[in-house]
Amino acid sequence: MWIKCPRCGEILYNKDIVKNLKVCRKCGYHFRLTAEERLAFTLDEGSFVEYDSRLVADNPLNFPGYPEKLAEARQTTGLSEAVVTGEGTILGYRVVIGVMDSRFIMASMGAAVGEKITRAAERACERRLPLVLFVASGGARMQEGMVALMQMAKTAAAVKHLDAAGLLYISVLTDPTTGGVSASFAMLGDIILAEPGALIGFTGPRVIEQTIKQKLPDGFQRAEFLQQHGMIDLVVPRARMREILGRIVMLHVGEGN
């Protein structure tokens, strides 16, 4: 019923915080969202149609313990994989959308995630629709080894096709976006938005601290830091995200579509 804000310690009533799009009323901390919540907060009600819901990961390397890990992630999240893709409308504008859910093995990218993202980009091409991806990920999925790493190249090539077709791709970086995913489709948006406070980087801060044996400054690798360093277009608070996305799409497609 009650949750504690991990940043300011405020005790928040669950119902209230959902009403506030899961942002702490006191300090503005953006809680991580499930894919379902993200879709609900972003799309026009009832507009979502899912793609590839049955597409699931294999165990291409026969990696020990991986099937059990997948089964557990499926059970706890109710999702088949770490990304949900489909089509829907934002303020009336039709888009192809993908949402990653960090509860699913840290939304790491294996073959199934790479394939779903690629197919979403391909559908956007076929239907000449904008693509909006809400990114969150710990990186490439270790248990799928090089098959996972190569999804970086595969998804980057898919973005290139969208680009060549003159279509709009907006990536929205959410907490956390790191590793191989940050170094592929996440950073390739025509327009890159981010949620306040989201951790975004190639190497995670803990690994950097261990390597350089120094404490990192406050705010390092946060969305605001990336905007300051010229890496993203705009930090957008969750309360304005739907409106900003709608406006960007509107400015690209004209009136209605």
Binding site: A156, A157, A183, L188, I200, G201, F202, T203
Partner: peptide
């Protein structure tokens, strides 16, 4: 770093 690697892949 992420952006540079991503740009190379593309």
């Amino acid at each position: 770093q992420s952006c540079a690697i991503a740009q190379n892949l593309l």
